[in-house]
Design a binder for these strands. Structure first.
Lengths: 348, 348
DNA sequence: GGCGTGACAGCAAGCGCTTTCTATCCAACA
DNA sequence: TGTTGGATAGAAAGCGCTTGCTGTCACGCC
């Protein structure tokens, strides 16, 4: 029914071994033989059996990319860049690899299960993007899994995620703390003293680091923070909208709001507008990430640009062994403050 | 080095066959035995070898999802919904499947290569999302590939893509033509007679269908279209921005612009604003898809809502055989006109 | 003329799992 | 007590490929 290597071999009048070697091309095969084999492959419309070949060779060409939310361009941009470098079809790289992205939905259980599934498939490499969950048992479980993967020969790269010590994983980490600090300092520099902060989900590293940066800036300028000025939510627009209304309820005198990311900031802008506040005249709003739509907002969003595509590309190259890992297996990637129309000096 | 089924069997004092049966759970195994095996699995930290099991069982738990652009929420939303239903980890479904999304970047070659890769892996199912390319040789090649996949037992589902006759593929198609017509009729109803159209890439089915709907509406109302009123571009914001400037240059008297999708519409809005035109007072702008950000635009975008998540979920269920295929293997999914602030009556 | 040598090609042993068929055991039944 | 059959467990034959090792052959050199 299905065509196998043996069928091709028979047709080309060679042994299966020869066909395999032609297909893998790492063994001398006479040109005439090769051609005969290739013709047979073509005529029979032969397709290699992946599992069988993975089993025999004890390696596979599968590369996994884990993302928290596939519908969020933050991850989409990274995934796309990684995939290009991995050399999925048409990618820059040579061999054809099946670069697949797995959507964890931010759930640690799913993340773990996907890692197991990839381990099961003997994936050639795994790239984990985005912040990690800080819940101890899970963090430990993930670390253990990563170590196992590394030991089994799977290259593990973290992209935009804090290092995982002793796991053999290479980490490209975003400088969220520094970026957050710089952003808030910009606002302070404009004269703001009453700043709200819409944070992401509590237990995520990204959330914590950005918030820490914000607080560091406040502290550095002797601004005492009112606990009411921080609200936690999800990394989406809806959450930003609701959190802003809450913030406004708690303290209507805020002159600026810093959001956990651009989507949240957009939601914040919407809430402000509906509350009759002009941006930036009445209140300033700032985001984080600088996703493509941020420049389109009205007014355009002040934010911290993260080089997502570059980071992803680098992660992909490292995963493929086409670029050396950074010294110590850790690289820190800085963001860049983009000052635009959504922030200005406070009233008065 | 790596733990195999045999190791587990030895430890549990049973035969490999029994371990396999415990793990697959489709054969009677005494409770006590099962428990012993499970304990051994746990103690040895055993992970099934995917390729080996796929080879022996001649099936795999891999499911492929092809998208044109992973960084575009249009695809992200569908992919996410599909993946949930496929029952990737944590999904609604039972067995653990590796639902993977493959980014074709809109390139037909890549699409083909990914299909081959998936075929090679003996994927359990494949879902193709988004419009197809109309280039004849490629369309034929893709159709042939889909037929092969179907024949090999891979379930093929098209989500938001026109039917592929005689390939065995189930199609859930968006009613792009009807949606486009309705949208333009809304504009005509408001009094517009001079409408620009920013279309997507020439060779895509989605592009053609939406444009046809637009033209059908014009024709139905006796409006003769000026060829200068249509510009082709990509499905992104940048393209919308540039196309709008071009449109304005060609005919500054346009009172409305219909965009191929929401991203394009956003770019159009930006271009309008920079050209000193108010929306909708001076010019109306409409999009398509109703992505989450569309409601956030200022003014909010009039657009056609496509039930992306629902369609994706349904495609996923059909791919898993958990929902019956529509009669004839084809279902048409209608969009819903969402009238919002970006469209209004023309001046005067 | 014998033989080392290079260049290919083939043999055959797995890779780790699934599954059919067979063996075993014990309870129940006649 | 002999027999039948249900419930489990095991033996073993692959699944389709890769690859180390073993030929085989033609050349050219001493």
């Amino acid at each position: 029914m299905t065509v196998t290597l043996a069928d091709v071999a028979a047709r080309a009048q060679v042994s299966p071994a020869t066909v395999s070697r032609v297909l893998n091309g790492n063994y001398p095969v006479a040109a005439s033989t090769r051609e005969r084999v290739l013709r047979a492959v073509d005529e029979l419309d032969y397709v290699l059996n992946g599992p069988a070949s993975a089993l025999a060779a004890a390696t596979s060409d599968l590369v996994g990319i884990l993302v928290n939310d596939i519908a969020d361009p933050f991850f989409g941009i990274m995934a796309s860049a990684i995939q290009t470098e991995i050399g999925g079809p048409g990618g820059r790289a040579g061999g054809e690899r099946l670069a697949v992205v797995c959507n964890t939905g931010g759930s640690p259980e799913r993340e773990l299960t996907y890692l197991t599934l990839l381990q099961r498939q003997r994936a050639a490499a795994v790239v984990l993007t985005g912040g990690a969950v800080e819940d101890e048992p899970h963090a430990a479980a993930v670390a253990a899994k990563l170590r196992k993967l590394s030991e089994a020969g799977t290259k593990v790269v973290l992209c935009g995620r804090p290092p995982a010590p002793d796991t053999g994983a290479i980490a490209l980490t975003f400088e969220n703390r520094g970026g957050g600090k710089e952003l808030t300092e910009h606002l302070i520099g404009l004269g703001h003293r009453r700043l709200g902060y819409i944070a992401g989900p509590e237990e995520r590293t990204t959330t914590r680091h950005r918030l820490e940066g914000h607080r560091a800036a406040l502290a550095a300028h002797g601004i005492e923070e009112d606990p009411r000025w921080t609200v936690h939510g999800r990394y989406d627009r809806r959450s930003g909208y609701e959190a802003t209304l809450e913030l406004l309820r708690r303290d209507p005198t805020l002159t600026a709001v810093v959001a956990a990311n651009d989507s949240v900031a957009l939601g914040a802008c919407a809430a402000m507008r509906e509350s009759g506040l002009r941006i930036p005249e009445d209140v300033s709003v700032a985001g984080f990430d600088d996703l493509p739509f941020s420049i389109d907002a009205v007014p355009a969003l002040t934010t911290v640009r993260l080089p997502l595509a570059e980071a992803g590309a680098r992660a992909g190259r490292i995963a493929m062994g086409r670029e050396e890992a950074p010294p110590g297996g850790i690289a820190t990637i800085r963001g860049e403050l983009m000052v635009r129309g959504s922030t200005g000096a406070p009233r008065g």
